[in-house]
Write a protein that binds this DNA or RNA. Structure first.
Lengths: 262, 262
DNA sequence: AAACAAATTCCACTATTTGGAACAAAAATA
DNA sequence: TATTTTTGTTCCAAATAGTGGAATTTGTTT
């Protein structure tokens, strides 16, 4: 009956998670009717989906406001997801060493759904904000790790991806077109490292490199971030070398730790 | 046909999440067959459930090992869950102030499924381990916050809960019977604060108090934790006061921020 | 107390899930 | 290399769980 396009259905699960996603990404708290409007589903169906999510502890009803919040079960899963993540486990000591050398904030990130997701962070003891960044996402096109990761995908995929991106302007250095991004990625591919020159946030620069498996598949990216005011030209040069070296070391470690088979 | 006991079914969603839970709580990485054994489901069904979880990004297949890991989508949700959590938002400044006064680690936790889940933590800049603790769980019966939270439930619920707990012995001070726990909770109810006297970990003590809504319903708990070696008797007395004061302040703030209705 | 809005329940209809078995691929063994 | 065993994937009729429109209940406003 229906052999349209990429027909991807995860059935009942997908529908329930769509509800969860709306709750997760809404800026203001939502009541039943708000969800009804945003999801355009029949009352009955939505109602049951919500009860299931509640019963499973994925969401919570705030009795005072009648609005839904994400449940703490998600926090618990995330904690487990983080600690068992194999990429993170392998990379951790290298990130620590890189931080040691640079004394700047070091990130580990992966690509998901056209966005960068931060997996780990090593920083000098600062105001200890939550996971600081862990689990947060940023656009690919204006972050060091983002562009670094794109550089190991084949040109065609990058072009496709660039086409469907929605370029937002964060600073006057933000890349704002598919063409600009493609050109930049081309260059990154050649030099093996990427830079963010205040493209996402004014006053913040970073140097990044991609992580790949033994088969050359994209695994993630790492970066060193710094405020420009304490940045000196030769430091930057030094960091490029260190970041690339560290990425290389992690790649080698990945081969040993994960895939001694091909 | 089937009116057995507490008949709680979340249908398809519940089954999918059961798979996720097995992956989450396993100590070693699991392959398809491992999951099959642990879940005792027909091959076909499990296979489809796994594909759905994969497609939704809730789990990832590690191509090198053929094992499944939790997906980063969970990290992203957790990050949002944490930042939008209203209890945490309200409590945050009070936790910071309490940390300021005591200069010791301060925790915010909630009760879920007979366990304590840590929601927030303020600590002196130490080795920055991930969420440090956020999303981690501990038993109720051997933690300060755990026992503090039990003290605001009615005696019957606590007795029931105590009965179904599996008391593990962590130190020589760990409470190991429903009776002991009930007695302790009784006392906590009277004095309005709880203590963990090296019951979970040798050398660690803590003082805790429960958080309640305007209607007196349990909302969570807070605690101050310290290594015994730097503990002096009069400090402890001081902290009891501060912890109870802080809890009271948060409770008041909860009334204002959340529920000005009854 | 009436009018209104929001949330919950109901139930005949329909789509998805189920689970056993057949099939394919990969590893282990001969 | 051939053979067996293990592991993973696909199929489809039957069973089950989800759908969605409407009626009912609950709770808020006038």
């Amino acid at each position: 009956m229906n052999l349209d396009k990429a027909e991807s259905q995860t059935g009942t699960l997908g529908k329930a998670l769509a509800v969860l996603d709306v709750i997760a990404t809404s800026y203001e708290p939502l009541r039943f009717t708000d969800l009804l409007n945003r999801l355009g589903q029949p009352r009955g169906s939505l109602h049951r989906q919500i009860s299931h999510l509640l019963e499973e502890g994925l969401i919570t009803l705030n009795a005072d406001t009648g609005t839904y919040e994400l449940g703490v079960r998600l926090l618990n899963w995330a904690s487990l997801a983080w600690s068992q993540n194999s990429l993170r486990q392998v990379a951790a000591p290298f990130l620590a060493a890189l931080h040691e050398r640079t004394n700047e904030t070091v990130h580990l990130a992966v690509l998901r759904d056209d966005r960068v997701v931060y997996l780990d962070k090593v920083e000098s003891c600062q105001a200890v904000r939550m996971h600081s960044q862990i689990g947060n996402t940023s656009p690919v096109y204006c972050t060091g790790v983002g562009k670094a990761m794109l550089s190991v995908l084949d040109q065609a995929s990058v072009a496709e991806l660039a086409q469907r991106l929605d370029f937002q302007v964060f600073t006057k250095h933000t890349l704002t077109s598919p063409a600009a991004l493609l050109a930049e990625v081309e260059q990154i591919r050649a030099q093996h490292y990427a830079e963010d020159r205040e493209e996402h946030e004014v006053g913040i620069r970073c140097v990044a490199a991609p992580l790949v498996s033994a088969q050359g598949e994209l695994r993630g990216g790492i970066s060193v971030t710094t405020p420009v005011y304490r940045l000196q030209a030769q430091q930057l040069e030094q960091w490029r070398v260190w970041v690339v070296e560290t990425a290389q070391a992690i790649n080698n470690s990945l081969k040993v730790k994960l895939g001694p088979h091909a």
